[in-house]
């Protein structure tokens, strides 16, 4: 597939997740002034940081009068999961020059990760899968800027988008990506453990429960996979 083809497919495949993010961008734009951010600073945070969860937690902390150091530390903890995505995608982008790897890393959100790893998992010989990455990342990014701007400009005049439940688009997409990946017993067990840990750690702050769930799922998956291959080895 050509570069432009991959690019457009990336933008297309992430579309449900883009739609799902619209209410959150608008809510962020609406709420940020309450934390003392000017419209430009609000826009600046969406444009430069580009991390929904971290942005929401930052304005909540700022509104509560928490110091900058705590906000930065929290940003680090909330974004830790991105290091996992970074490690997971590294084998696919390491052949690219730095002027590609840097912008792609900047656009590596939860949503982008979900559709991009799905694309790389398809084993065709396309040489331009990084253009898919770029298309998906850019679509998510431009939408985040636009919806933040709508929130700043129209604020509470926007009808209550959150009550529509557009966030279900993300759930449906993640289901559509994850379920077909559960082909082996270790994969199914990994998902089950991740789900249980996520539920048990739901009250943990700063998305730490998500990391615990990921680690739990990974450890169980690897453990079962190794046990299965050890048994096979013993039989042979």
């Amino acid at each position: 597939m050509s570069r432009s083809h991959e690019f457009l497919n990336g933008a297309r495949d992430i579309l449900p997740l883009v739609v799902g993010a619209v209410p959150f961008g608008i809510i962020f734009g609406t709420l940020a002034s309450g934390a003392g951010l000017s419209p430009w600073q609000t826009m600046g945070m969406s444009a430069l940081v580009f991390a929904g969860s971290a942005q929401f937690i930052a304005i909540t902390l700022l509104a509560g009068g928490v110091g900058a150091l705590v906000v930065l530390l929290t940003t680090f903890v909330v974004n830790l999961r991105h290091a996992l995505y970074s490690a997971s995608m590294q084998p696919f982008v390491r052949h690219l020059p730095a002027h590609w790897r840097m912008p792609l890393a900047f656009w590596l959100t939860d949503e982008a990760y979900a559709v991009i790893q799905h694309r790389y998992a398809r084993e065709d010989d396309s040489r331009y899968k990084h253009w898919f990455f770029l298309g998906a990342g850019l679509a998510m990014y431009l939408n985040w800027q636009a919806s933040t701007a709508v929130g700043i400009a129209f604020g509470r005049a926007v009808p209550d988008l959150a009550s529509w439940g557009l966030d279900f688009a993300m759930i449906a997409t993640f289901i559509g990506i994850a379920v077909p990946m559960m082909r082996t017993r270790p994969q199914v067990a990994s998902a089950a453990v991740a789900a249980l840990v996520a539920l048990a750690t739901w009250s943990w702050p700063y998305k730490l429960g998500l990391i615990a769930a990921a680690i739990g799922g990974i450890v169980v998956g690897v453990w079962l996979e190794r046990r299965a291959s050890a048994e096979k080895g013993a039989l042979a």
Binding site: L84, M181, A194
Partner: peptide, 8 residues
């Protein structure tokens, strides 16, 4: 196992 675990 990252994708399946995280998405779930």
């Amino acid at each position: 196992y990252v994708p399946v675990a995280v998405l779930t």
